[in-house]
Amino acid sequence: MNYNSPHKGMTLIVKTITRITVGLILLYGIYITLHGHVSPGGGFAGGVIIALSFIHLMLAFGKEEALRRLPKPLVSLFESLGAILFFTIAILGFVGGYFFLDWLNKGEPFKLFSAGSILLSNIAIAIKVSFGLFGIFLVLVLLKFTPKK
């Protein structure tokens, strides 16, 4: 399928710029997520930026192209998985003594691999938030109103 077709989405200029920037936005979202415990940001902020990169794709190339890459069942699957991942981290702590107990090695402060389970929690939250936000956007796009006669 030719997703450069001029009949779908926005103009060629927008599509070209999107193709360059969308990866960078996604990468920036991942960076914000992974460095949540050492710098400003975190799972929620990173997740929102990741969701924005998906939405960016949809705005530029039209909803068919975006839905081909990220179909609706996949979005809702990842949304639930993110929640369950976060829940699992809490439950693992519960098994180890206290609910949400940080059972991992704390590591050296200000290093990437430190702060124990907070990094894992941030990743879980980022998955949940990014797919949840994209899911809401998707539902609003796909919603059709049938006016009552």
């Binding site: 809702s76 639930s80 369950i84 829940f87 439950i91 519960f94 609910f99």
Partner: peptide, 21 residues
């Protein structure tokens, strides 16, 4: 004593599993 966090946790975990499976 350990059961206390299970009250919100069971409901939340159950909700996510039901939506998944």
């Amino acid at each position: 004593m350990h059961i206390l966090p299970l009250f919100p946790a069971l409901g939340l975990g159950g909700a996510f599993l039901v939506s998944l499976l």
